[in-house]
Amino acid sequence: MEEKIKSPMGFILILPALSVLGLLYVFPLIRAIWSSFYDRAGNFTLGNYAKVFELYTRDIVYSVAMTAATVGVVLVISIAIASYLRFRDWKFLDYMYRLPLFIPFLIVGHAMRIFLAPHGTLNALLTRIIGVEELPGISGSWTGLLFSFVWVMTPFATLIILGAFKALEPAYVEAAQNLGASKLRIIFDILIPLSGPSIMVATILTFVRTISSLTIPLMVGPNKPNMITIDMMFRVNYFNDWGVANSLGVISYLIVMVLAIYYLRYMVAERGGIKG
């Protein structure tokens, strides 16, 4: 601590980084929170929040539920893929699961519309397999949105979880195997519990990226209910109402904060229990 005061050099060196952080992150955030409490005339008000709860309670619940569902499905799939790749070397799967990482959201959105449309690829396939004609398209429904979110978010989560699985001391897995544990038991008894922090990170990143995603819900999601991000965009585009848009932003920020606090508490507990 004293070191820092004695040498201003260190402070000067991190100044550029600090300024960027302040300029691009802290300042806009404070601006947003600030303006959520003011009306167009510049008077302090809680009206923006009242309006949010009047108009958008359902959308907020929907956004959280959709995001939570996405996180749940993504975790199941990425743990399954990561487990498979931890035990078996399958180059094809190893490349395939990363593919969505390199496709822009806009293109994913468009592709999903085609894929999930009433006469789209998915239904054509389903008709062939189960023989039922005239299936409804799930594009524009919550299932279609969930499908698209999962498609986009899974690779990132898998990357994190597989990294953790592969970094685990192999002897932990072998010791369990040696005592008679099947692969499935090892996944639940050894791999997952010992990769807790990484799974937590995957969960939070998936949650944040999903709840803040705009392109995908815009292109594949239903008209009603909407994700919060779309409500924000409409509020600004059609009503030029930055106050309510910012209130919505602050609320989604608070939702993520809850998760962040949970994460920090988990990490502290983890540090205390298992060493480093």
Binding site: E169, A171, Y172, E174, A175, A176, I190, P193, L194, G196, G273, I274, K275
Partner: peptide, 9 residues
Amino acid sequence: FQNYALWPH
């Protein structure tokens, strides 16, 4: 195992 491989959790 040489390094014991006791499960830390």
